[in-house]
């Protein structure tokens, strides 16, 4: 017997398994980042003096990174739309662009970390630096995870298109949902850490 509803949605829920699965996973991710945001608030409220992010961190760099991530969100959705319209080569091109945008984000992040280290700003410097490195580091790991998945779907994973194009399109939609969530977290991280 085969596991049902991997490609066709179950009639009464209207969903395929992986779609429900990824949303549940994202719900748990909300709780993970939520706990860190909650800790941020608690630490900040109880602190004696909390620095304004822009006095320590570079706002232009972070704004650039925000644009990069938002752009990668639109490219992943374009990849899905292209596949939905049956165009594999265009879809793969967009997947590759998304991957490269992710890579750009990580490189900028690495540069940012590096300048901080050069100025002697390590996580042990203050609670602000600690939460900054923890939040952006964890977010960076999520970006990295997404990039690995995109690399897989651009390369060996794309073989699936030949046998099961619909299944492959669904997979891109699912990883897209994850990627948008990573983008969404950054949308909050940016003002919280850099601007306030």
């Amino acid at each position: 017997m085969l596991i049902p509803y991997t490609v066709k949605p179950r009639p009464d829920t209207g969903l395929i398994n992986s779609k429900l699965g990824i949303w549940l996973f994202l719900a748990s991710e909300v709780m993970l980042f939520g706990a860190l945001f909650s800790s941020y608030i608690l630490l900040r409220v109880n602190s004696v003096d909390w620095p304004v992010g822009s006095t320590i961190l570079s706002v232009p760099i972070a704004a650039f990174n925000t644009v990069v991530l938002i752009s990668s969100s639109i490219t992943v959705i374009m990849a899905w739309a292209s596949l939905k319209m049956g165009n594999l080569s265009k879809g793969r091109m967009y997947i590759l662009i998304t991957f490269l945008l992710g890579l750009t984000f990580m490189c900028v992040k690495a540069y940012e970390y590096n300048t901080k280290f050069h100025h002697g700003l390590f996580p042990s410097e203050s609670t602000f630096m600690a939460i900054y490195f923890t939040l952006t580091g964890l977010h960076g790991l999520h970006v990295l995870g997404g990039m690995i998945v995109f690399a897989y779907f651009w390369g060996p994973g794309a073989k699936m298109w030949k046998t099961e194009p619909e299944h492959f399109t669904n997979r891109i939609e699912i990883v897209g949902l994850y990627w948008h969530f990573v983008d969404l977290v950054w949308i909050f991280l940016f003002p919280v850490l850099y601007l306030l």
């Binding site: 993970l32 706990a35 860190l36 800790s39 390590f122 996580p123 600690a130 490195f133 923890t134």
Partner: peptide
């Protein structure tokens, strides 16, 4: 997940001296 977040923070405390 909240415990995972707390675990990450305690790891930071122990390994990165936060």
């Amino acid at each position: 997940p909240p415990l995972e977040a707390a675990g990450v923070m305690q790891l930071m405390d122990r390994l990165a001296d936060t």
